[in-house]
Amino acid sequence: MTVDRRSFLKFAGTAGAGSALGLSMPTILRAASLQPVKLTLPWLPLGTFSYAFVAKKMGFWEQRGLDVTIDRGFGSGKVCVPVDQGQYEFGILDLAVMMNCAARSLSLTAIAGIWPKCPIGIFSLKEYGITKPSDLEGERVAFNVSSGDFQLWPAFVKATGIDDKKVTKVTMDPGALIKVLVEKQVKAEGNFYGSIAPSLWANGLEINSIFYEDYGIKAFSNVLAASEATVKDKPELCQAFVDGMMDGLKYVYLNPEKSVQLHMESVKEFQGGNAMNEKVVEYGQAVSTALGLVPSVKANGLGYMDPALIQATMDTVKNYMGVENLPPADKLFTNAFVGSVKVDDAQWSAIEARSEKYMPRKA
């Protein structure tokens, strides 16, 4: 267990005569025995990733002998290389992006699913009245080139028949995307529903959404991935990590209010009692839950990836993105580590009822 400065001062201030730092010998030994593991998110530490922070805060990984460090990301496209090269044991990213990376000889395997529903789309302020793909022609649309929405943009253009040359694409750092939309420097932007909607809702703004999925671009979205070497050589580590994360995911599903507080306590950027930050986390967490509710997960356990949807994602990557040399499906994903963490029927019904209003919908 890593002791940060605040925790250190707390322990030191209450230390007894037998322990100058307030850390007992068993605590020190336990911390030393934990295996350090690094996880990279695909984006900022928003409520869409509460399950990871809850898993750490609740000790679900520590119980399995893991000391997990969670780092923010800069788009799914920038998760591939550090995971492939072993800088991170695990990474969360969009599956279509992972497949694109795998076609470029990066050895990555999805070992648990998070979002079977695809939240990728083009979003705009409701006041602009942009409700269909052709409305984007003649407009400035912002993108982060490392994000899944930009990498799937060619698929969206092909599927909808819009004139790509009539769309002025403005690329920028992911941190600027929401800012330029709110300040009306662009009319729309590519993004993930769970990244943009919570921030705008917390600011009292309404949005219109054009989801790629509604135009035939079927794809499994966020997955937990590891390098092929990690999956092959360290199956016990993969199992422990997946089980801990799925426990975190289940806790979020069943205890949303408490999970918001755990997330707020875990991320220093969200601390300080800012009500808007709390709403951003709350909305993001709710959207993330809504994106995970599909029958195959209910039947087979949290993290399960439907092989038919995996194949549909491969077809999207091949047919719309023009990606060749994709590895076979059994190299790209495995359900070997999922299925032990489940939600019963009554719990599932309650989660669905609470999440219905956050389901992705057309404008």
Rank of each mutant, 00 (worst) to 15 (best):
D306M: 03
E265Q: 08
V343C: 07
I351R: 06
F270K: 03
L291R: 14
Y304I: 05
D330Q: 12
F333E: 00
S355P: 01
T316G: 03
E269A: 12
S288P: 07
D345K: 14
S349V: 07
G303M: 06
P307H: 10
G292Y: 05
A290I: 09
S259A: 13
P328G: 06
L291D: 14
N300G: 13
K279T: 11
M276H: 06
E352L: 13
F337Y: 15
A286L: 09
N335S: 10
S259V: 01
R354M: 12
N335A: 10
G273Y: 01
N274D: 15
G284Q: 01
S259Q: 02
V260R: 07
S288N: 10
Q311M: 12
A353T: 08
N319I: 13
D330N: 15
M264H: 00
G322V: 11
M321Q: 15
A350C: 00
E278P: 01
M305L: 12
E282W: 14
G322A: 09
A353R: 07
Y320S: 13
L293T: 07
N277F: 13
I351D: 05
S266W: 02
A290G: 11
L293F: 06
K318Y: 10
V267W: 06
Q271I: 00
A308W: 02
Y358K: 01
E282T: 15
A336P: 02
A329E: 10
A299D: 10
V297A: 04
E356H: 08
A275Q: 01
Y283M: 08
M305R: 07
Q271W: 00
A353C: 00
V343N: 06
K318M: 14
M264Y: 00
K357V: 04
G339W: 01
E278D: 00
K318D: 11
Q347F: 01
W348Y: 15
V317R: 02
M264P: 00
Y358T: 02
G284S: 00
S340V: 05
A275C: 00
K298D: 01
Y304F: 15
E265N: 11
E352S: 14
M264Q: 04
V294R: 05
G322E: 10
K279M: 14
V281Q: 12
Q285M: 08
P328K: 03
P307K: 11
A329Y: 03
Q261E: 12
A286D: 08
K342N: 10
G301A: 12
S340N: 15
K298C: 01
D344P: 06
Y320L: 11
F337G: 14
Y304A: 09
L332R: 03
V281P: 13
P327E: 03
D330K: 09
Y304P: 09
Y358R: 02
V297F: 03
L262I: 02
